[in-house]
């Protein structure tokens, strides 16, 4: 007769094998990319001002979008976590829309609101801000497709903060604003930081929406795509490896910071 633990070991073995396949599916292409890139070509990519510039553009535009929109996304997340109102489910659904629509369509949608004929386009021009073919447009396109990650993570973070603590803080004479900044925000900070990292990462790797709003200046994903279509896999690979490496290093560093907090 088999014991329970023997059955469990068999199940664990099967699950480990099955679970290993998707893990391999993620690791293998990346590892293959690294293995087929020589140090020489990687050095050339590092030395290329065009490659460095595109990576830097991806990093800062995505960061700018994440910081800018976090001032709006975090209050919305708090409301969604704490308040019940009509059409709340609809609002939650709308927030997820950018995740499910094709990103080229997302780019078209963003383009629609930033053309010279649109309100935003006209207002921007009044202040000398151009969106199309400009970092400002890239920021909007990146934020559009990545903001759900921040809102959802922050909402879950606020929801996990016991409401009782906020109420106790009120009974101690704190204003609702003080309660938000001293209790709710610090306690939800870990989730917010996770959402922040996800939004930034998702934004900087965006291709479909960005290429429609701004082919130039080129972000890293567009540069990699252009090198691939113009010169082939071998020429695109070093820039891709460099971009992936930068992304990985930043994410590892941020996750360490998050864990320490």
């Amino acid at each position: 007769m088999k014991t329970i633990s023997a059955n469990n070991s068999f199940l664990n073995l099967v699950f480990t094998f099955l679970g290993g396949v998707p893990l391999l599916f993620i690791i293998a292409p990346l590892a293959g990319m690294y293995l087929s890139t020589s140090f020489g070509s990687l050095g050339e990519a590092i030395g290329s001002e065009e490659v460095r510039g595109s990576i830097w553009l991806s990093l800062w535009t995505s960061m700018a979008g994440t910081i800018l929109f976090s001032f709006l996304a975090i209050p919305l997340s708090y409301l969604l976590a704490r308040k019940n109102f009509r059409f709340k489910n609809l609002v939650n659904g709308i927030i997820d829309v950018p995740i499910i629509i094709p990103h080229s369509a997302a780019g078209i949608a963003v383009l629609g609101i930033i053309t010279r004929d649109s309100f935003l386009g006209r207002t921007g021009e009044l202040f000398g801000i151009k969106f199309i073919g400009n970092p400002a447009g890239i920021i909007l396109a990146m934020a559009f497709v990545s903001i759900p990650f921040l809102i959802n993570a922050a909402r879950d973070g606020f929801a996990a903060v016991p409401e009782r603590l906020e109420k106790i803080a009120l009974t101690l004479g704190a204003s609702p604003l003080r309660v938000f900044f001293t209790i709710s925000l610090p306690l939800a900070w870990r989730s917010i930081l996770s959402g922040f990292i996800l939004m930034w990462g998702r934004g900087m790797s965006e291709f479909g929406a960005v290429i429609i709003v701004a082919y130039n200046p080129q972000t890293a994903p567009i540069l990699i795509y252009e090198r691939f279509t113009s010169y082939g896999l071998k020429y695109a690979m070093p820039a891709a490896v460099l971009f992936v490496t930068v992304c990985l290093l930043i994410f590892i560093a941020l996750r360490i910071v998050r864990r320490k907090k």
């Binding site: 016991p162 009782r164 603590l165 106790i168 803080a169 009120l170 009974t171 004479g173 001293t182």
Partner: peptide, 29 residues
Amino acid sequence: KIQKRNISIVYQDTDLFPHLTVFENIAYP
């Protein structure tokens, strides 16, 4: 409003702000 009532409440547990030290908790009001 709650914050204007001058009434404190202490529960069975889960009262203290977990991210603050004892000093900071007492100093909160």
